[in-house]
């Protein structure tokens, strides 16, 4: 095995562990932190099923954002839907044989990359053009967008400009999953693409990308509006009550 393969193999195990352990840690931390008071933003659903619907609308349609700002919604939704399709298309690198959906999404995934990158550029433009958004932007906000654009563009280079050896790559990625390590093709765009993706995986659990798990734990969105009918009390508050 070449040292290049060795480095990327090591990098990907490291990144995968950080991502999985990190996100798992966050999820445990969020779920262990009590929500002592009922604070859904009302009008809120009065049943658990209603809350599931509300959450689904937030995650799939970005409902609140739609009410809020149409430009952010358009760009944000383009980016995320594009990203979702691209990621679905990428599942093929880790499956043999492939599920039907993954096969089905292949042609769309290619063009979704344009949607994803266009959305990102739109969001980025706002960080320069809108004075309020410029004021709140930190360097990390810009770098996060730069990172995602670079991942997208390096991927598109391979799709549309200089193809990489997909068969060999797939052997490499499947090898990672099955612990049967295979050499990695060494084209520039692929190496860049993969290095940036690993970086993204590593920073995921310590950055604002936590909005993805975070939204499911947001008390203003995930609570049922029934405080007159049910009594809820956090463990630390109950302990104080008994004193």
């Amino acid at each position: 095995m070449t040292s290049l393969t060795l480095i990327y193999t090591g990098l990907y195990y490291f990144a995968a562990i950080v991502l999985i352990a990190g996100v798992a840690y966050r999820i445990v931390e969020y779920s262990r932190t009590p929500a002592p008071l009922k604070i859904p933003t009302t009008p809120a659903p009065t049943t658990g099923a209603g809350v599931a619907m509300r959450m689904a609308r937030e995650v799939v349609l970005f409902e609140s954002l739609f009410k809020s700002n149409k430009w952010i919604w358009v760009f944000g939704w383009m980016f995320h839907v594009g990203l979702a399709l691209v990621l679905l298309r990428h599942v093929r690198y880790f499956q043999e044989p492939m599920w039907f959906v993954i096969e089905f999404v292949q042609p769309y995934g290619t063009y979704a990359s344009f949607m994803m990158v266009a959305g990102l550029l739109g969001l980025w433009a706002r960080r320069f053009l809108v004075d309020r958004v410029r004021y709140i932007s930190t360097p990390s906000d810009h770098l996060m967008l730069a990172l995602l654009v670079a991942i997208g563009v390096s991927g598109m280079m391979m799709t549309f400009v200089s193809h990489t050896d997909i068969v060999a790559l797939k052997a490499f990625t499947l090898g990672l999953v099955t612990f049967d390590w295979q050499p990695l093709p060494s084209d520039g765009p692929l190496l860049v693409h993969l290095a940036l993706v690993a970086l993204l995986m590593i920073i995921f659990p310590i950055s604002k990308l936590l909005h993805a798990p975070g939204i499911f734990f947001s008390p203003t969105r995930n609570q049922v509006d029934n405080p007159r009918e049910t009594r809820s009390i956090a463990p630390w508050a109950a302990a104080a009550e008994r004193k």
């Binding site: 969020y30 609140s64 700002n69 958004v133 906000d141 604002k208 936590l210 909005h211 734990f217 008390p219």
Partner: peptide, 15 residues
């Protein structure tokens, strides 16, 4: 939990 999640989750979208 509100404070914990809110401190992490904001993406500075500006909405």
């Amino acid at each position: 939990r509100s404070l914990r999640v809110f401190m992490d989750a904001c993406v500075h979208c500006g909405a």
